Simulated scan of single mutants.
Amino acid sequence: MDFKSKPEQFYKAVGVAFTISGQSNETLTQSAKRAQRRKKCEAKLRLEDHLKRFPDWKL
């Protein structure tokens, strides 16, 4: 599949729901506690950071 990227102005903010492993949940919980953030906020920040660091990652 070839995905064409649209200019950023065409994308809206969206909610995303998925299941993570127990080990990932533990790591995320500990990280959120250390940062004094809610786990949901920690997950959002980590995902956005990863996508900024690796924007062209391919399968």
Rank of each mutant, 00 (worst) to 15 (best):
T19R: 14
K4R: 11
W57I: 08
Y11H: 14
K52T: 06
N25H: 15
L51I: 09
G22N: 12
L28W: 02
M1F: 05
S5G: 06
E42Y: 12
S5V: 05
P7M: 01
Q9W: 14
A13I: 06
L28A: 12
S21A: 11
V14N: 12
N25K: 11
L59G: 03
G22W: 14
W57S: 00
P7E: 11
W57R: 05
K6F: 14
E26A: 04
T29C: 00
F54E: 14
K52Y: 07
K12L: 15
R53V: 00
L59K: 11
S31T: 13
V14A: 14
L45F: 12
K58V: 10
K44E: 14
K12P: 00
C41W: 00
K52S: 00
E48S: 07
A13H: 00
K40C: 02
Q30G: 07
D49F: 13
V16Q: 07
R34G: 02
G15W: 02
D2F: 04
L59N: 09
K40I: 02
A32L: 06
K39I: 07
K58Y: 09
R37T: 06
R46N: 13
K58N: 09
M1C: 00
L28H: 06
Y11Q: 06
K44R: 14
T29L: 03
Q9I: 04
I20N: 07
K44V: 08
K39N: 07
L51H: 10
A32R: 01
F3K: 04
R37G: 08
K40M: 04
R34H: 07
R37S: 03
R53A: 00
R46H: 12
Q9L: 10
K33F: 01
K40A: 06
K4D: 01
A43P: 05
V14H: 14
E8N: 05
R38K: 09
V14Y: 10
F3A: 04
T27C: 12
G22S: 07
K6W: 11
R37Y: 05
E8H: 10
S21L: 07
T27E: 15
S24P: 00
K39H: 04
A17L: 09
F18H: 13
E8Y: 04
S21F: 13
Q9Y: 15
D56F: 09
R37P: 07
S31R: 14
K39V: 02
Q9V: 10
E8R: 04
Y11V: 06
R37M: 04
H50R: 09
